[in-house]
């Protein structure tokens, strides 16, 4: 296998990763396997991924506070199950970016495909561009902030966490949503089953302001509307059969 680092310092697996060192890994030379192996057993605290070329599962399974800059477009499941990493993609990403994230942050400078942030339990996912269908599907505590629009069926069965959309949301937003909170600044195509508009109280304005700040977006929280569960589908009942 090709050496991973373009840096002269030999890898140090013994002590804590030296902070000052930036390791560059060129995915057109090294494999994704070699990249992820390094990120799972890091010899440094800061990484740069060059020529990602849309490869899948880039930087998946990070379990500590590394910073990773991916310079280009990534494929499916980029930063999948991230648990503590601070990951920035300087490009677009495919399906399932940061799926099932536990903690840390993932920032996409471009657009994201389907199921961004799916099932995430924690951490912050920021998509500066737009996200496709099923953004935040089944989310379980993650915060997702999208600078642009999101596609249909987003926040389907979303359980917990916050989804902030600075642009428009597609049809069937929040279908069968549980306790996740959804904030949209633009138009909403149509609300999904049991998803309703809810009043914006001070606590909501405050949490939204904090999320926008964390995402480094300076929209006025008062320009957003809030959506969440009507909680009418929480108990199975025959008269709901059209909604099921």
């Amino acid at each position: 296998m090709e050496p991973l680092t373009t840096d002269a310092t030999p890898p140090n697996h013994a002590g804590p990763p030296p902070l000052e060192r930036l390791v560059s890994i060129d995915v057109s030379v090294a494999t994704v396997r070699a990249l992820n192996n390094e990120l799972h057993h890091p010899s440094a605290a800061a990484y740069e991924v060059l020529q990602p070329q849309g490869a899948h599962a880039i930087a998946a399974g990070i379990d500590q506070a590394l910073t990773v800059d991916i310079r280009g477009h990534a494929g499916y499941y980029c930063a999948g199950m991230n648990d503590g990493g601070q990951i920035v993609v300087h490009g677009n990403v495919g399906t399932g970016v940061a799926e099932n994230m536990m903690s840390g942050s993932v920032r996409i400078r471009g657009d994201a495909s389907q199921s961004a942030g799916a099932t995430g339990h924690g951490g912050l996912l920021v998509i500066e561009g737009s996200a496709s269908m099923r953004c935040g599907i089944s989310m379980k505590g993650i915060d997702i902030v999208v600078g642009g629009d999101i596609g249909p069926m987003s926040a389907f069965m979303a359980q917990a966490g916050r989804l902030v959309v600075c642009g428009d949301a597609g049809d069937d937003l929040g279908d069968s949503v549980y306790e996740a909170r959804i904030y949209v600044r633009g138009k909403v195509g149509a609300l999904g089953a049991d998803c309703i508009e809810k009043p914006m109280r001070d606590e909501h304005l405050a949490e939204l302001a904090a999320l926008l700040t964390a995402a480094r977006l300076d929209h006025d929280p008062r320009a957003f509307r809030r959506y969440g569960s009507g909680r009418t589908l929480y108990h199975f009942a025959a008269h709901n059969s059209a909604a099921y």
Binding site: N36, Q114, T119
Partner: peptide
């Protein structure tokens, strides 16, 4: 599944699971 549909996606999902758990 929330983040894959069909066998071609499943192949990539399996790849991701292998990557996360170092094969």
């Amino acid at each position: 599944h929330p983040d894959w549909t069909g066998p071609d996606d499943l192949a990539i999902k399996i790849l991701e699971l292998r990557e996360i758990t170092d094969w």
